[in-house]
């Protein structure tokens, strides 16, 4: 009898946790996408929460510090790390994406402080939504810099 009560209690808690997880996941899911995939979905992707990654095109970075509005273009890079590795590592993939004019690109707008790591050929990882005007409005902007990557080659020769 007692045992039954405890089992019912445990099941109820378990159900509550499962409900919390399921409903919170549903309400807050973000879809991983590459620039290519986002462009392919086009209007269907408007107002969907998306996590987008791409290579920052340095020439296009514009920052209006009076309104704190930041805009820049990103070029398509593969979303899969195995693929990035196969193509010669992140730094190389980012570089090729930026110099290749045929690569799919998308314009990004972000309001806020300009991140310290934003520069040419950085990897930008953003969450936000695609606007009807084709601009990706990012709420959150994370950057990875290939120059900080552990495998970079030492540049200066030794004065031995």
């Amino acid at each position: 009898m007692q045992r039954k009560k405890f089992i019912i209690g445990g099941v109820l808690i378990l159900a509550a946790v499962v409900y919390l997880i399921a409903s919170s996941t549903k309400a807050n899911a973000e879809y991983f996408m590459t620039v290519d995939e986002l462009n392919a979905e086009g209007a269907a992707a408007v107002s969907k929460s998306v996590r987008l990654s791409g290579a920052v095109v340095g020439d296009t970075i514009q920052y209006d510090s009076s309104t704190l509005t930041l805009t820049f273009d990103i070029a398509d890079v593969p979303g899969d790390n195995a693929q990035i590795e196969a193509q010669g590592g992140l730094a190389k993939v980012l570089h090729e994406a930026v110099v290749d004019p045929t690569r799919a690109r998308i314009k990004v707008q972000y309001e806020g402080v300009m991140p310290d790591l934003l520069r040419d050929e950085a990897q930008a990882i953003m969450t936000g939504k695609l606007g009807a005007d084709g601009v990706f409005y990012a709420d959150e902007l994370l950057l990875k810099c290939p120059t900080k990557y552990e495998e970079a080659v030492p540049e200066q020769a030794a004065a031995k």
Partner: peptide, 14 residues
């Protein structure tokens, strides 16, 4: 088949 991730609002709510 689609990759989904969750951010801080998920953790806060759950």
């Amino acid at each position: 088949g689609t990759k989904i991730t969750v951010g801080p609002p998920y953790y806060e709510r759950a």
